[in-house]
């Protein structure tokens, strides 16, 4: 490992070590900072500095984008000190480690799924903490990402005229990710598919739901061009307006 092996074993007071690590952090030398914080804990496992150092060490790793190592360090801290005052921050930082590793919608989304789980846990365990608010904002984005993946796959199947496969993918977006920005397009795609299949009144019904919930959207305009003026015959039940679909301010946790 790094050259300066010998001074690692010099026993130094906890506070001095901690401050040295802190200054390294401020200079942006995150890798060295995380090593220095580890040193605090190794030499003085019983000092109050040790616990602070564990969290700060993880934060240094996070800043150095060593997300996996930060994740491991945080999990160890959470197991060792469930009662610690910084525990909410530890859960939140662990969620951020996953969040940073999200890749774009055409690629593997397991990091996105883990991020969604971790953010939901932050909100469940510490609903009043200041981290919960930011966690929910980020949760909306991870949901949008997961919906984005479903859309990518749906469009692929539509493009290679696998209409059944495409239909089920777009339905999943409407049923499971009804808060995301992809719902209008998903509804429109169903109008397209139902028209291709010859299920014309189903196409009209979906167009009605689209128009009712997203009247201004371009997708409704396209649906209109496709299906024409949506004539709701009287005896048909009104298009179901799912509470989840209408853009609703108050937000209940899934």
């Amino acid at each position: 490992c790094s050259g300066k092996k010998d001074d690692l074993y010099v026993e130094r007071p906890a506070e001095a070590l901690y401050n040295e690590a802190l200054s390294l952090m401020n200079d942006g030398k995150f890798r060295d900072a995380s090593k220095a914080f580890d040193e605090v804990e190794r030499q003085h496992p019983y000092s109050t500095w040790a616990m602070k150092a564990q969290v700060m060490g993880a934060y240094a790793l996070y800043e150095n984008s060593d997300y996996d190592d930060a994740n491991v360090a945080l999990s160890r801290f959470i197991d060792l000190h469930p009662g610690n005052k910084d525990i909410a921050y530890a859960y939140y930082l662990r969620a951020l480690c996953q969040y940073e590793q999200m890749s774009d919608v055409r690629r593997d989304q397991s990091a996105t799924e883990r991020a969604a789980e971790a953010l939901t846990e932050v909100m469940r365990r510490f609903p009043e903490s200041e981290y919960a608010r930011d966690a929910r904002l980020k949760l909306d984005l991870t949901r949008d990402h997961l919906a984005g993946r479903e859309m990518v796959v749906g469009r692929y199947y539509l493009k290679s005229n696998q209409y059944l496969a495409a239909m089920n993918r777009f339905r999943k977006v409407i049923e499971k990710f009804d808060q995301t920005t992809h719902v209008p397009e998903a509804l429109y795609r169903l109008v397209e598919i139902n028209t291709i299949l010859g299920l014309n009144w189903e196409a009209q019904r979906v167009a009605a739901i689209l128009g009712h919930n997203f009247p201004g959207s371009e997708w409704y305009q396209d649906a209109y061009d496709l299906v024409g003026e949506v004539v709701l015959d009287e005896n048909a039940p009104p298009p179901p307006v799912s509470s989840a679909l209408t853009p609703v301010e108050s937000q209940t946790l899934p």
Binding site: R107, D108, V153, Q162, A165
Partner: peptide
């Protein structure tokens, strides 16, 4: 697991589709 490869590049090699 497709950290770099696009989903479509793998999916299009499949002889079966969903459903």
């Amino acid at each position: 697991g497709n950290v770099r490869t696009h989903d479509e590049v793998i999916r299009r090699e499949f002889l079966i589709a969903e459903g």
